[in-house]
Write a protein that binds this DNA or RNA. Structure first.
Lengths: 249, 249
DNA sequence: CAGGGTTCTTGACCTGGATCAATGTAAACT
DNA sequence: AGTTTACATTGATCCAGGTCAAGAACCCTG
């Protein structure tokens, strides 16, 4: 930005931009799910200014790579992402799928390097929150800090649930749990709980659940035969959500 | 505590108590690993005052139970803990083991209810950090907030590693990873990296790693036959840490 | 230190889901 | 249109690790 130039018309332009900017978070469809929730409007305006908005990524493009230096936390704005960690032999674990309003990269705060690789599953966009700037606000906006911790805590608790899934559940329970969790998350975002698109491949699902692709394919077939769900390529219709919930274990 | 009584000798007693209190965190053997690290000494004194210290628990006693209302985060002072979550059919997953300097209960910040049950594995003590009081300090001590986030982030990243373990590793790799991780954590705490006690039962280990007790027993036997480690009941001697690390995958 | 419980080890057997293999489908590029 | 390459389904076979069973070693507590 160039030096301010004190002629009246320019001032008004700046004011207008500021105002539109101020609205960006408030008018966002994800506001209800997002970080700024509960901030005072002047705090929100300050936060708004440091957010780098609407960076767009196409399918398979990386948002960041494993061990890259940590600079920002990202919030999914549209589309979907997966994060992966690799063990040896090129084995990879899909550690999570991320949908609009969800945060990516928080596990890098401690080590200051991203601990996973994040890839877009389809054309997607994110809001970037430069972490240093966020910290500068810390003292002035304790609610913001609290929101951040709450987010971290939420991911922690869903990771623990995933441990139960990976460690204790059968293939069928895993599959049912996955579908119910997707349904829940779509509903939270104002979409249908019973009809949605799977943006990830069968092999991503299998990997995430600790199963083989073939097993996922068979399980989906079985659930379809049992009239619990209907698949048509990537699109899913849940026909008996209650029954599916009972299968979760 | 009774009302202050302004005679000189009592004053001196109070001053002395305050001073000792001030030292409690600084003189703690775990200071280097703990939350107050990096705080200014006056901030430290304030933090010191809200910490409820040295609560003692005996073997199998619960620190908190699943779904109990969240009030405090705990730091292990001595001994060891495990946390568990239950699926249906009474199946339980041991989600973590916690040693001195490590934090328990952070996954409850979001939901305001503990998301797991924490039990002492041996006679243990904790420092209790009442979360509301901690929050009150937030604005005044941004470093403290930052430390908290860093802690949360660290647990997040170790949970992701556990996902790789549960989802992708073989029984042998799991076992090796577990032993190496214990070794590392004991070393960080100033203990021997090669000789330590397993405070948890075989069945807790098995459960945590997503294995059957019998498999753990066989694996430990096999590692012992291969001269990598030596077991004598609960005590372990790692004889070839490097080889063990190679087995982690 | 006897005895009743719990935890640990070891062996024999079994199975859920992995792996291998072959074919089907469908999007992406000539 | 046809060709390539990736993804998905289905069947046949296999095996790592689970389950069952039976002792052995280790507690506790009286």
């Amino acid at each position: 930005m160039t030096h301010a130039n004190n002629v009246a018309p320019l001032f008004r332009d700046i004011a207008k931009v500021e105002h539109e900017h101020h609205l960006a978070c408030q008018s966002c469809a994800l506001y209800r799910l997002c970080l700024p929730l509960g901030l005072h409007s002047d705090d929100l305006a300050r936060l708004d200014k440091i957010i780098k908005r609407s960076q767009s990524l196409s399918r398979n493009q990386s948002l960041f790579n494993y061990l890259a230096p940590f600079k920002s936390i990202y919030v999914v704005r549209s589309g979907a992402f997966k994060t992966t960690i690799s063990a040896s032999n090129g084995r990879e674990q899909v550690t999570g799928f991320y949908f609009p309003g969800e945060f990516i990269g928080m596990d890098a705060i401690h080590s200051q390097n991203y601990q996973s690789t994040a890839k877009a599953l389809e054309t997607s966009s994110v809001c970037e929150l430069p972490f240093e700037r966020l910290q500068e606000f810390g003292a002035a906006m304790p609610q913001l800090q609290m929101q951040m911790m709450s987010r971290l805590s939420k991911e922690l608790s869903s990771d623990k649930s995933l441990m139960v899934l990976l460690g204790k559940k059968t293939a069928e329970e895993k599959m049912a749990t996955f579908l119910v969790s997707l349904s829940r998350r779509f509903q939270d975002r104002g979409f249908s709980a019973t009809e949605f698109q799977l943006s990830m491949s069968r092999s991503d699902i299998a990997n995430h659940l600790g199963l083989a692709v073939e097993t996922v394919s068979r399980l989906l077939g079985r659930l379809q035969d049992g009239q619990l769900v209907h698949f048509e390529g990537k699109s899913v219709t849940i026909e008996d959500l209650e029954a599916l919930q009972k299968l979760c274990g």
